[in-house]
Amino acid sequence: MSTHAKQCILVVDDEPEILRALRAGLMAQGYEVETAVSGTEALQKATAHVPDMIILDMVLPDGMDGLEVCRRLREWSQMPILILSALGQERQKVAALDLGADDYLTKPFGMDELTARVRAALRRTHAGTPQTEAPLFEWENLKIDYVRRLAFRSRQELKLTPLEYDILRFLTRNADRVVTHRAILNDVWGIEYSEDIQLLRVHIGHLRQKIEENPARPRLIVTEPGVGYRFKTTR
């Protein structure tokens, strides 16, 4: 896809005021915007227009909620999905992320936050080489050599245990994406450990001690309360 063409975003929400505000905000940022007010319409438009990204509210009318739309979309598309959820829908949020949604925002949110998340999601899919195949990862003074399984901080090799390295690899491969506890546990430990969040917390703690400047205020591996972690390469 040409980078000159306007990128198209499909916004799905049943509240017209929110749709209007999002359309105005996103169009001001130079995106083309399609809207849908129900799950069924969202799937129709997604098939007809194939947008570059979809912003999806969890609560939708007509019996097909955001979770179901997410599941159906992932059957044929890898387009980034940004979930909008209200207070108290933590479980649904995590379920959507586990189903393959890329990110979430809790209502009410600011437009700044939303555009930052949209930019990050689109950048991931349109980066020259998909990040999942790059042999090297570099951010600030941190460098990871995926081929030799080594990590460096300010050119100094970090002494990481194999588990810590695997967590770091998984987080950086998904940089700027929320990864759920379950996703990390599945990838690093295997499916039978997917509920052991405490285990993960201990190792994340150790990892932060080694790579963060101030482990008490982590800036790289940030906690997404109740959901998981995000490796942040944006300010």
């Binding site: 969040i197 405490q198 917390r201 994340i204 703690g205 008490a216 205020r217 982590p218 906690t223």
Partner: peptide, 10 residues
């Protein structure tokens, strides 16, 4: 579940 209060504070 088991939480690190320092992480919560952050």
């Amino acid at each position: 579940d088991w939480c690190d209060l320092a992480e919560i504070a952050a």
